[in-house]
Write a protein that binds this DNA or RNA. Structure first.
Lengths: 192, 192
DNA sequence: CTTGGTTGTCTAGCAGTGCTAGAATCGAGC
DNA sequence: GCTCGATTCTAGCACTGCTAGACAACCAAG
């Protein structure tokens, strides 16, 4: 292996370290605690090194978001794959989505609450984000109902999940209703 | 009127000026532009004056949020009052909610995206916030369906609206589906 | 009208933020 | 061992929210 190759490899590894450290720090202490100084200290480099990998903090958040989108898509596909019926698949999808948002709040924030400099619903949308939407579409298409475009239905179902995820995490919904909210969502929205 | 009364009145008026100016600035240039220095300059006082009215920036955001909750509740009640049928009322509610979020993005952010130091779904929740939820409840109760607690149904319907509002404003949903999303939401969720 | 004291306001500054220019250091190839 | 380009760090900028202490305005009493 050439010297150049080794350097490139080490550089890529350091970039992964930055993203992983940012994510860890955000999950532990919230995104406010992810300052460039704190992050630099944790990876044991100085601040300008961060800027040699990313244009700024936004891009770091964006990188965490893309990582999250990949995980979320995989989790949804895994959960729906083993479910035997359309109803079971939709329920699994909803529960998995909400569980991911609940257990990875910082990543979910990076995806949807913070500005990671990412675009959506157009050609420049990063592939992992489009794929996460595709994962939803795969399961939801079969319960969209007659004459309803799957994309339209998926947008609505996704919006409902997103609303539930954000409002419940902000403490704006009663925790004791959590399960029944999901049940009602599936019962009403999906055509079974 | 005593001197004390006059001072109290002037003080209250200045407080309203602060909130109104913060809101205006946020709608014009986003909340990031609402710095204590910028805000102080616009009201033609120095920064410490802001802190004699509010504990900090969070409380100013919270004040804008409460103003927004009051407006939103009124808008929903006005829109549903004239609608002749349950279906028309629910549709009016949904459209009004989403229109408010779209036309007052900074206020909506103050309510739900930013931390205004407000609590929800408990006893210490400010009255205007509880009342806004009550306004939703009034119209949605009649379409909750048999055996479904109105509060549970309202939480779900509200979550869906909130998800639609935030995702569509972030450019994550296709604009051309906007009307059909609302139509589908009402059709599926409400029991008519 | 002057004084005294309270109330209100402002100036100036702190510690922290994201980000960057230029100095210092490292290391690969001769 | 030396050179010189690539890499990394130090030190600093302009900005943020927030506040201590100096200053000014004002009202009541003499």
């Amino acid at each position: 292996m050439s010297v150049q190759e080794r350097k490139q490899r080490e550089r890529a590894q350091r970039e992964r370290l930055i993203v992983a450290t940012a994510r860890e720090l955000a999950e532990q202490q919230g995104w406010d605690a992810v300052t460039t100084r704190q992050l630099a200290e944790r990876i044991e480099y100085s601040q300008p090194v961060l800027y040699s990998h990313f244009r700024g903090k936004r891009e770091i958040i964006g990188a965490v978001a893309i990582e999250g989108a990949t995980e979320l898509a995989a989790a949804i596909r895994a959960a729906t794959a083993t479910a035997p019926s359309p109803r079971a698949r939709v329920t699994a999808l909803a529960r998995t989505y909400l569980a991911y948002a609940e257990h990875n709040p910082a990543v979910y924030d990076a995806l949807f609450q913070l500005d990671g400099g990412l675009t959506f619903a157009n050609d420049e949308t990063p592939a992992p984000l489009k794929d996460a939407f595709a994962a939803l579409l795969e399961t939801l298409t079969e319960v969209a109902g007659d004459g309803i475009e799957p994309g339209l239905f998926t947008e609505l179902f996704w919006s409902s999940l997103h609303g539930l995820a954000t409002l419940s995490r902000a403490g704006r919904l009663l925790p004791e209703y959590a399960d029944r909210r999901v049940e009602l969502l599936v019962d009403r929205l999906a055509v079974l």
